[in-house]
Write a protein that binds this DNA or RNA. Structure first.
Length: 274
DNA sequence: ATTGTGGCCTGCCCGC
DNA sequence: TGCGGGCAGGCCACAA
């Protein structure tokens, strides 16, 4: 599923959609529009504009609208927020620009291109498109999304930030790492991989980690994100081959534990993680 | 406040 | 061969 890494790939792809004038918006699924947004409102807001920048906070992709209209006339500066559209991809959302995908293989999503799965589409004057496909409709589109409640981005997390996130929390380590208000961008697969590499039990209370363990966790967090980014995504971790019912630890061959932690299916090695 | 739970959505996989 | 029940998890509302 798209976690922070995949959304970073999406963001890079979205940069090819910058500075192109929008001529049409298709939002066929009202349920996909969040925060009271309507198809008419998003069309009014986008048509005639272009995207000036593609940013990312955790799993949220942000497209900044150009401050100026196509005629170079300054926009109404009184309008609040500066014009940002937020795209969430849920578990099975895929981004395409001009028919190109940022991620070829997406775990738990389908490779089919059923037109019915198009939840949001922007057409540019050059006839190119930006398309969100989402079979399960767990993503969404929102204007001026609130990013204040998101924690620091996982891809740039410092050791000090990690320490602060874990301090004083009775919550299971894994739940704390996946809490988007604390750290933005870690999903289920990445978190299992990071904790497995760090040899830490996902069910331990977050605050029980000592300094050495926090530093170890931070080292593996950074290393894992860098490595899987190069490999191509969250599903390319070393644990993945064993991450199945009855699966075994790729390190030692011991049967993996399969538990629900923080409401998520969690795989861990009883021999390596404590 | 913090932490946990259930439900949303629907394609796909497994077993019968 | 077709069918039905789980399963997947990001996110949110709500409960304790």
């Amino acid at each position: 599923m798209p976690e922070g890494l995949e959304i970073e790939f999406y963001r890079r792809l979205a940069e090819t959609a910058l500075d192109r004038v929008v001529v049409a918006v298709d939002a066929p699924d009202a349920w996909y529009l969040k925060g009271g947004l309507t198809a008419e409102a998003v069309e009014d807001r986008l048509v005639g504009q272009s995207f000036a920048a593609a940013r990312r906070v955790g799993k949220l992709l942000l497209l900044d609208l150009d401050r100026h209209g196509t005629d170079g006339v300054p926009e109404d500066r009184d309008r609040e927020g500066g014009g940002v559209i937020g795209l969430r991809f849920g578990m099975t959302g895929v981004l395409e620009v001009d028919g190109e995908r940022a991620v070829e293989k997406l775990e738990y999503s389908s490779l089919r291109r059923d037109p019915a799965w198009i939840r949001f589409q922007v057409t540019f004057a050059d006839r190119g498109t930006l398309v969100m496909r989402d079979p399960r409709r767990l993503g969404g589109v929102e204007l001026e999304p609130n990013v204040a409640h998101l924690g620091p981005d996982a891809l740039a997390l410092t050791a000090g930030q990690l320490r602060a996130v874990l301090a004083g929390s009775e919550a299971p380590l894994k739940a704390r790492l996946m809490d988007q208000q604390r750290i933005a961008g870690l999903g289920n697969l990445l978190t299992d991989e990071i904790l497995w590499r760090s040899r830490l039990d996902p069910d331990r209370a977050a605050q029980t980690l000592d300094d050495r363990e926090v530093r170890r966790l931070h080292k593996h967090l950074r290393r894992t994100l860098d490595e899987l980014m190069v490999r191509g995504g969250s599903h390319t971790g070393d644990l993945m081959v064993g991450r199945t019912r009855g699966g075994c630890c790729p390190k030692c061959g011991a049967p993996l534990d399969r538990r629900q932690i923080g409401g998520r299916t969690t795989y861990s090695c009883p021999r390596h993680q404590s």
